[in-house]
Nucleic acid binder design. Structure first.
Length: 885
DNA sequence: ATCCTCCCCTAC
DNA sequence: TAAGGTAGGGGAGGAT
């Protein structure tokens, strides 16, 4: 992802020497990103200029406003965040009207920052970041185009001008294009801001009452939704009022419908912009947001769910430490009388938390999802029970949900609130019980076996009562002798209830229960069972264990056999150590070129890095996953980065950082480096003296970045071996000087690459992966996607690793095919690298591994070590080495 | 036999 | 395409 300028020092001189002219060259991580950005900006600008000139020449006729210099001459905009119209459309306006468009912010080049509807916190950031440059709403561009002259941006400025501007914007946003869905304008001709609840005929409540509350809340909220369908239609119709669009803008007009709201109301005085219509297929993507990964994760519900556990463990670490499955507990209770488990689960959590603020809506159908736009293509993630009565379910599109229930109220997520309520929830649980297993932000198991003197049912209703009092959200609970039955009990108790299943009732409870209700039985296994005419647990009990083993494998077969009988011997586990950490994005991924790809990977690796650090772990294996849009063309066709639709990065074989620090003094690599810095001269002398054979390269103090060094590098391991053999008495110290160390080896150790959080490491990772992408793109040879293929990695890799594998999988669903690259760092290749090391240094592998891990942990303290080392690799390595004490 | 790796499946 | 993430378990089949 980062490319680099040819002027800089490569940390891989062997490679660069040949490709200096043509290919971009890698350099040290820190500056690499800079140069990547420089490069990218340069490229984008020249692209833009090319487009602009062709656009102004080719379209001069259709673009009457473009006369001579164009109205935006001298204007250079930077679009911050998501805007309506989109950054791409604004770019189009700039293109056609003589302005400039900057993809990345630079206070030198940018004259105006464009943004709209940012949350307050972002506004504050932006204020600091804008450095006095005008921050204006996109309407400025549109209105200037419409009036064919450069309007003053002052009235469109977001700050500096008044909170009034802001408020008005919000107000107009609310009424013009952003309002809660169940409320609508009474009539376009009604100049009052009158909004009625649709179901108000039925309701005896004043329709204005909840509305005004909502209004207040929404005005105070950063997040508001577009208007409902009929409103939007209405406003779309008023498009007629907008007459001033040039012919050349007809296309963009389609993309971003501009409309004027009723002018008789002050709050409608400003023009508002509706969402882009369906023919704009790029809403928000890597294409127009340089901080896409970060922003995307901020609003991804699945990301919230997926990362919640880490936040929880951090927050409640004091509760979780030292609390285990007590010995006396095992003795006194579980043996004699069996366990007592409570499963507790908040009711439709995502909705309930939102409805804390809207008690009036508690009995109305409410759902939560990202957007309530007219297309209704947003997915509902949670619906309350009134909504479920209409058949509304999580996973439905808004459009379908509204077809089921006309009055459905749709709210956006509020992740902060979810976090807050989850904290309250767990605080209560931990207060009452010391054996809490967190399942998710709204669901947990309590083991109360050792609380002999309490009644489980009153205990759980006490907890539920406290939860509802504290959080204003209800929870349901199930009580039973094991985790399975407790969970099933909760299911039957919902909403806002609890259920106790004593042992003698288990059989009866399960008899008619659909097998698919059992946890662990999903779509796939469910279908298999259905195909065998097995529907209920009672029926499943008729099947022998042997048969289940045969059909589902041993473990799954056991699970089926046990679960349908209500057996479950899992224990409530307070803390589980993570085995892998990763991040992936399969939404909004659009790369124009390999630089976009690299940029994205940089962001992703940063994310993964910081999570590893938060967990205090190092990882040994890195896995890069790429998903492609499945173009149904010839499968043999090379996959291009334009077709990438998803990228994931996963780290595994984790080790705790403290563990690695503990063996610090035995750090093989560190002592190696240390020794090296002392004995290097000696080493060189000895080697040169003893090395009579011509086929072994001579060790040198420094390696000039020429072709000779290429050969020497490639042979460095051989050289090491030879040197060691010939200088027997210094078996340990006769390790290669760092100048002889093939940095690709270090580079390919994932622990070094990603385990630390600083940019140097991120840079290395992204540099490395960028290389993979390029190679995968340009060098993959495959005859069929359903087979595995190897391809030659080319010179730089083959010296160390030989081959690298690409795995293709055509069985992926959803018209995508997955292409997973097992990085050389990850498994076999890293192993072989290490094996080479062990062989060379007569060390056992685990020692070396530890050394490597420790080395990476140690270097964390020397944040600039790597980058300096990279830069000075060819001449000043000894200085760099001395930085590692 | 006993790993390891590449998946798929599941849950929230 | 309005925000389809994250992580563990386990089966199949190959490597050792």
């Amino acid at each position: 992802m980062r490319s680099s300028s040819s002027s800089s020092v490569s940390r891989r001189p062997l490679k660069r020497s040949k490709s200096n002219q043509k290919a971009p060259v890698r350099k040290s991580p820190f500056t690499d990103f800079e140069s990547y950005m420089k490069d990218k900006n340069r490229k984008l600008r020249s692209q833009f200029e090319a487009e602009a000139s062709s656009s102004s020449l080719g379209n001069s006729e259709s673009s009457p406003v473009f006369s001579g210099r164009g109205i935006f001459h001298g204007v250079s905009i930077f679009v911050n965040g998501h805007t309506i119209p989109s950054g791409q459309e604004l770019k189009g306006y700039m293109l056609r009207h003589g302005g400039r468009f900057e993809n990345y912010f630079s206070s030198q080049r940018v004259t105006h920052i464009i943004c709209s509807n940012l949350p307050d916190s972002k506004m504050r950031n932006l204020k600091a970041f804008s450095r006095g440059l005008p921050v204006v709403k996109p309407e400025w561009v549109l209105d200037s185009v419409a009036s064919n002259l450069l309007l003053s941006s002052a009235p469109y400025q977001i700050f500096g001008h008044s909170s009034e501007t802001c408020k008005q914007q919000k107000l107009s946003a609310f009424f013009g294009c952003k309002s809660i869905s169940c409320f609508k304008e009474n009539d376009a001709s009604d100049s009052n801001v009158r909004i009625d609840c649709e179901g108000s005929e039925k309701s005896m409540n004043s329709p204005l009452e909840p509305q005004s509350k909502l209004l207040r809340n929404f005005l105070g909220s950063d997040r508001v939704f577009p208007i409902r369908l009929d409103e939007e239609q209405k406003l779309t119709n008023s498009l007629d009022k907008v007459k001033k669009y040039e012919a050349s803008d007809a296309d963009s007009l389609k993309l971003s419908i501009r409309t004027t709201a009723p002018s008789d109301d002050g709050s409608f005085g400003k023009p508002t912009y509706l969402k882009q219509t369906a023919n704009s297929d790029v809403h928000h993507s890597t294409f127009n947001d340089p901080n896409f990964v970060e922003n995307y994760f901020k609003s991804s519900r699945l990301h919230f769910i997926g990362t919640w556990r880490n936040r929880y463990q951090k927050r409640f670490s004091n509760m979780l430490k030292g609390v285990g499955y007590g010995k006396e507990f095992v003795h006194s209770s579980s043996i004699t009388k069996g366990s007592t488990i409570i499963h507790i689960d908040m009711d439709c959590f995502f909705v309930s938390v939102i409805l804390r603020k809207y008690p009036d809506l508690l009995n109305e159908p409410v759902a939560v999802c990202h957007s309530d736009n007219s297309r209704g293509t947003a997915e509902i993630s949670s619906a309350n029970y009134p909504a479920r009565e209409y058949g509304i379910r999580a996973g439905m599109f808004v459009r379908d949900a509204k077809a089921c229930c006309h009055n459905l109220v749709v709210f956006p997520y509020d992740f902060e609130a979810y976090e807050e309520v989850a904290d309250q929830f767990y605080s209560i649980l931990h207060k009452h019980c010391n054996k809490v297993q967190a399942v998710s932000c709204d669901e947990a198991f309590l083991d109360i076996t050792e609380y002999d003197d309490i009644n489980p049912e009153s205990f759980s209703s006490l907890i539920r009562k406290e939860i509802v009092e504290t959080t204003k959200c209800t929870a349901s609970a199930g009580i039973a002798g094991n985790m399975l039955m407790a969970r099933l009990a909760t299911k039957s108790a919902k909403p806002n209830g609890q259920c106790f299943i004593p042992p003698e009732k288990v059989d009866g409870f399960l008899e008619e229960l659909p097998i698919t209700s059992l946890p662990g039985i999903g779509h796939s296994i469910g279908e298999k069972l259905k195909a065998k005419e097995l529907h209920t647990c009672g029926q499943l009990r008729m099947v022998s264990k042997v048969a289940l083993h045969k059909d589902f494998g041993e473990r799954v077969g056991d699970m089926l056999w046990s679960y349908c009988r209500g057996f479950d011997d899992r224990k409530v586990e307070v803390l589980k150590e993570a085995k892998s950490i990763g991040a992936e994005v399969n939404w909004g991924v659009r790369f124009q070129d390999i630089m976009d790809c690299e940029h994205f990977l940089f962001q992703l690796s940063k994310e993964v890095s910081s999570r590893l650090k938060e967990c205090g772990v190092l990882a040994r294996t890195v896995n890069l996953k790429k998903s492609y849009f499945y173009a149904n063309s010839d499968k043999k066709e090379k996959k291009r980065c334009q077709e990438v639709r998803g990228v994931g990065l996963q780290m595994s074989r984790l080790e705790r950082m403290e563990l690695n620090r503990r063996v610090h003094q035995h750090n093989v690599l560190e002592s190696w480096f240390l020794l090296h810095s002392k004995v290097e001269d000696e080493l060189v002398r000895v080697c040169n003296a003893t090395d009579g054979a011509e086929n072994v390269p001579r060790l040198q103090r420094s390696l000039p970045p020429n072709e000779n060094s290429c050969i020497e590098k490639a042979n460095s391991l051989t050289a090491v071996r030879t040197a060691r053999c010939s200088t027997d008495e210094s078996a340990r110290s006769a390790l290669p000087p760092v100048s002889q160390l093939d940095m690709s080896i270090i580079k390919h150790l994932p622990t070094v690459i990603i385990s630390e959080m600083n940019d140097a490491y991120n840079g290395m990772l992204y540099d490395f992966i960028g290389k993979q992408c390029k190679d995968a793109k340009s060098e993959t040879r495959c005859s069929s996607l359903s087979e595995k293929h190897t391809y030659d990695e080319g010179q730089s890799f083959s010296a160390v690793h030989g081959k690298m594998q690409l795995c293709f999988d055509t069985s992926a669903s959803d018209a995508q095919t997955k292409n997973e690259v097992e990085l050389a760092t990850g498994t076999s290749n890293a192993t072989s690298v290490l094996r080479n090391f062990s062989d060379a240094h007569d060390l056992n592998k685990s020692t070396l591994m530890t050394g490597v891990l420790d080395y990476s942990a140690n270097v964390a303290d020397e944040t600039s070590w790597i980058s300096k080392h990279m830069e000075s690799e060819t001449s000043e390595h000894s200085k760099s080495i001395s930085m590692v004490r």
